[in-house]
Design a protein around this nucleic acid. Structure first.
Length: 308
DNA sequence: AGCGGTCAAGTTGAT
DNA sequence: ATCAACTTGACCGCT
């Protein structure tokens, strides 16, 4: 009966299970075997293919009623590899620039929220300067992609603790200042399942203005003094745009040997009550191995529950 | 077509 | 010491 638009926008992470949509990748070893010229040409071909695929992925999300899509870090394979650096200016020029613009316009037209999630090698809390430098370079690369395709989130974890979380987070905060505006304005930090809890990250978030992506599954694996409701409220408060949340379910149940492993689907009882009561819009990325099938199933559960 | 070996990077905790 | 886990097995090259 005149149902209000749900304030929860569900997001798909990186890949599809059933749809014929696949991103390609390659290895440094293979490119080297091809030689400098042919290696570059091959990678360029993959990049063009991948952004074409991204446009299809966005359209597919629209058709399926999925509201957000996380773009794989490898969309430009080996972008910051020492032997195969990718020239970022190329993203704004010519045919490739046009492809990125197509993605951006499609996402805008269909209201598909795009994000990126650099992986575990990006560590702004690292001691080693070489690790920090590589991390900054990776963030700048992904920020340039985000800018081209209109993604507003570049999400990373706190990284290592090295036996002293406060000192590590202080290094993180210092290193944030070394980022360009394009990277810094998109950067977010997420609680993880081993080291940094929401309570650990909130001070960093408030200090730097970097929003907190609240992952409720990680919080259940790696809890702190905050309740789910309190962590949700505090996390939402760090956002100057639509907040992003993450959800998943344990592969073998909460009593299984490895609860941090992700299930194929989301158990609806894992969806926090505090999230059902939200009145302002949020994005919830669904981290489940059945990919879009899991998103659709959760979507169905949430909406059918909302209408009866 | 099927299958085995290979693949940039960091850190933690289970085995 | 080794290895799986982390947003995800995909790819080549051999049979």
């Amino acid at each position: 009966m005149n149902q209000k638009h749900s304030p929860v926008r569900l997001g798909l992470c990186c890949v599809f299970e059933d749809q014929p949509i696949q991103f390609r990748t390659t290895t440094a070893a293979y490119l080297s075997r091809l030689g400098a010229r042919d290696g570059r040409a091959h990678r360029d071909r993959l990049v063009e293919e991948n952004f074409t695929t991204l446009a299809r992925a966005i359209t597919c999300c629209h058709e399926l009623g999925i509201g957000a899509f996380r773009v794989n870090s490898q969309i430009i394979p080996l972008a910051t590899h020492r032997d195969w650096p990718f020239e970022l200016n190329v993203l704004r020029e010519g045919e490739l620039g046009g492809l990125l613009e197509t993605c951006r316009r499609l996402a805008q037209e269909y209201d598909i929220r795009l994000s990126m999630h650099p992986d575990q090698f990006v560590v702004l809390s690292a001691h080693r300067e070489s690790v920090v430098n590589a991390s900054l370079a990776e963030l700048e690369y992904q920020a340039a992609v985000c800018e081209g395709i209109g993604a507003d989130v570049l999400n990373i974890h706190g990284g290592g603790a090295y036996g002293d979380k406060l000192a590590a987070l202080a290094r993180f905060a210092d290193n944030v200042d070394r980022l360009s505006d394009a990277a810094r304005s998109r950067l977010t930090v997420e609680n993880d399942d081993r080291t940094y809890t929401p309570g650990d990250l909130l001070p960093l978030s408030r200090l730097t203005g970097i929003p907190l992506v609240y992952d409720v599954h990680h919080h259940r694996c790696n809890p702190d003094a905050l309740s789910l409701a309190a962590a949700t409220e505090a996390a939402l408060d760090t956002w100057n745009r639509e907040p992003l949340l993450h959800i998943s379910s344990p592969a073998d149940g909460w009593d299984g040997p490895k609860p941090n492993r992700h299930h194929r689907y989301i158990d609806p009882t894992d969806f926090p009550d505090a999230w059902r009561a939200l009145s302002s819009p949020v994005t919830v990325d669904v981290e489940a191995r059945a990919k879009e099938l899991a998103v659709l199933k959760l979507q169905h559960h949430l909406t059918s529950q909302g209408t009866n």
